[in-house]
């Protein structure tokens, strides 16, 4: 029996992320959610700069490449002029919280119905693992080689904390997208609970947009290559360190799409 493939992806293209990177997982869930909601034909993806850019070869919906950090501005313009479209962006933590924070918080304040998916892997992945605004102490980056965040940089930036201050945000959630490693007696296993929860978050965020609200979901993911860890170690790190620092959970669901 043949399996029905998602029309949101080019059947013969492979994504260009590193093995085990959850960027691909997020992209897959977006593709699945667009199909589930039946909005593939009016979806517009705005690509930001960073590893999230690499989606353009893989995803088969209309695509606009934004400058670094400016995806929210472009999304708002498209949404205002094409109210029927379903506009979303995948932004990295460096893209959204460093260079693009102004655009992001203005978009959140206005509440124009667009969706931002933030993939937080706590480093600048594409440029080679530099410190990001979200980098915690203890994670060695190429610009904090000692693994300690310089004091004057302040603590890691918490996107959900910032955005929870804006009434324009109608759906705000932080989820872990990384499969949790489970150690049984004889072997390592990965749980699929996180993946399913992340998919639900994607779905609910897009539903919120369709209901006319700004939605934002932060995904805690890995960048094992730049963290200089194995895939297994990096997944463990997310569950043991990242998730303690950035608490996952639902911050806001104004339209009750979670139910």
């Amino acid at each position: 029996m043949e399996v029905k493939q998602l029309s949101t992806f080019f059947p013969n293209a492979a994504n260009t992320y590193c093995p085990g990177c959850e960027h691909g997982l997020l992209l897959k869930f977006i593709g699945m959610a667009l199909e589930e909601l039946g909005v593939v034909d009016r979806a517009v993806m705005v690509g930001s700069v960073g590893c999230s850019t690499l989606a353009y070869k893989f995803i088969n919906v209309d695509y606009v490449q934004a400058p670094h950090g400016r995806a929210p501005s472009i999304m708002q313009a498209i949404k205002l002029l094409e109210p029927e479209s379903v506009v979303f962006a995948i932004q990295g933590d460096g893209d959204a919280l460093s260079i693009g924070l102004q655009e992001l918080i203005n978009a959140a304040n206005r509440g124009i119905p667009v969706t931002v998916f933030l993939y937080n892997n706590m480093v600048f992945g594409m440029t080679g693992g530099q410190m990001a605004p979200t980098t915690p102490n203890g994670l060695k980056t190429t610009t904090t080689p000692g693994g300690i965040r310089y004091k004057y940089l302040g603590p890691p930036l918490d996107a959900c904390k910032i955005l929870s201050g804006f009434d324009g945000v109608k759906y705000l959630k932080r989820v872990i997208i990384t499969p949790r490693p489970i150690y049984t007696k004889d072997r390592l296993m990965y749980s699929s609970k996180e993946a399913i929860e992340s998919y639900r978050a994607v779905l609910n965020a897009l539903k919120t947009q369709l209901n006319g609200g700004f939605s934002f979901v932060e995904f805690l993911g890995t960048c094992n290559v730049n963290w200089k860890m194995t895939i297994e170690e990096s997944k463990k790190y997310v569950h043991e360190v990242t998730a303690k620092m950035f608490r996952p959970g639902l911050c806001r669901d104004e339209f009750g799409v979670e139910k």
Partner: peptide
């Protein structure tokens, strides 16, 4: 669910 590459296209009845 866990495949990040969309390489596993699905599980079907044989």
């Amino acid at each position: 669910w866990v495949c990040p590459e969309y390489a596993i296209l699905g599980v079907v009845k044989a």
